[in-house]
């Protein structure tokens, strides 16, 4: 039996603290190729004889992507590797070039909807999971120097920011903050609204 080629082009796609390992398929005519993935954290390298830990959800899978989010759960450097299997035949391990540290995940600005409900300024934020908090900035249009900030730790539909005076526009923008990696996303688009008696008014 010819040696099974190791998977190639092994890369990580990591956005908003969701991490996926992907690789190119190994093509063997007439055969179903399956793959197994293992990871190794800094702890394993320095304290546990460089041991590797299998990810059972990605053991003998046919897909060429594996969700490794659950296992990349510390802000340290991880090694990752993939092997191909056809029946009892196994390839060499194909390894990710270099380490992966979740601190490099790309953070996107949050989806946000600003609402004026009577004289009350409210914001609706997208639930991005327990790792995320939101820093919401709001100000009276033209008074950018007197910006106010609210940290929203738990997203529960409509969050009250403040009360508004009748007349001026109020503008809002938000960014995510991930404490585990101590990083923030860029800010969302600014949205402005204006208080109007008892009805909601949108001004973008």
């Amino acid at each position: 039996d010819a040696l099974l080629p190791a998977p190639q082009n092994i890369t990580i796609l990591s956005t908003n603290m969701k991490h996926f390992l992907t690789w190119s398929p190994v093509i063997i005519q007439g055969e179903t190729v399956r793959y197994s993935v293992e990871f190794q954290g800094e702890y394993e390298r320095e304290y546990a004889n460089e041991s590797w830990i299998p990810i059972c959800e990605c053991s003998l899978i046919t897909a060429t992507v594996c969700n490794i989010t659950e296992d990349i759960s510390a802000t340290v450097a991880y090694n990752l590797r993939v092997r191909a299997n056809v029946g009892a035949r196994r390839s060499e391990w194909g390894a990710l070039k270099g380490f992966f540290n979740r601190i490099t995940t790309s953070l996107t600005p949050p989806l946000m909807k600003v609402i004026a409900d009577g004289y009350h300024l409210l914001v609706e934020l997208e639930d991005m999971g327990p790792a995320f908090q939101f820093c919401v900035l709001y100000w009276k249009k033209g008074q950018e120097s007197r910006m106010q900030q609210k940290v929203v730790k738990e997203v529960s539909s409509v969050v009250h920011l403040d009360t508004m005076e009748a007349g001026p526009d109020y503008c809002v923008k938000a960014q995510t903050y991930v404490e585990a990696i101590n990083r923030s996303s860029s800010f969302s688009q600014t949205q402005c609204v204006r208080a109007q008696g008892g009805t909601s008014m949108w001004l973008v």
Binding site: Y43, Y47, I53, D71, A74, V76
Partner: peptide
Amino acid sequence: SSIANSFLS
């Protein structure tokens, strides 16, 4: 492993 790597940082 997850706890150990968090402990390390």
